[in-house]
Design a protein around this nucleic acid. Sequence first.
DNA 1: GCCCAGGGGGCTC
DNA 2: GAGCCCCATGGG
Length: 216
Amino acid sequence: MREILLNIYYRLDRHFGPRGWWPAETPFEVCVGAILTQNVAWSNVVKAINGLKEVDLLSTGAIYRSPSGTIAPIIRPTRYFNQKTLKLKDFCSLVVEQYNDDIDLLLALPAGQLRKKLLGVRGIGKETADSIILYAAGQPVFVVDSYTQRIFSRLGIVSPDEGYDRLQEFFTRYLPQDVQLFNQYHALIDGAGNRYCSATSPRCGECPLAGLCKYA
DNA sequence: GCCCAGGGGGCTC
DNA sequence: GAGCCCCATGGG
């Protein structure tokens, strides 16, 4: 199975090249992006993050102190902006109140402890927590998303109704625990999911995995 | 005008 | 623990 998963990785890697994830200037910006990208296209997140930068609100302290009425209009392009405003403020509260406003202290926790802390924040679920651990903290956890589920079930490798935890265990069991590998693999899955393996109108003819895929 | 995109929480049973 | 609703913009 390890060879199969690495074969898929190499096919995608040759096709897409280095994806350079996560596109962010700081670990905190990764965290903000991970929350704002929930159920929305990344292009909308860019607008919101740029908007926060323009008014100098892209910091834990600033978001912590700013009223929701200031934040919400700026992140409006990311949809669910009222809920996401609360999510950002709750995350920043954790950093400010429990880690002396030093996000590096939080991100330095061992992955298991960090995950529990993050999952305790309203609005941070498994995928968002694992994205933060991998892309902001630089610790090797495999990030699962809906594309992972769709692509690998269409490949016939996992069951279509496999849950998050079981999918994560699967990749963790068979792949080397390597931050760079996990980083690029998730980014490649996203690329394939976005461009070729959509739910409603897949473009299997152009997909680099078509030769391996029962669905194609 | 219609469809849907890198989720998560809360509720019900 | 599965199923369902809520949230509520922008681009194709």
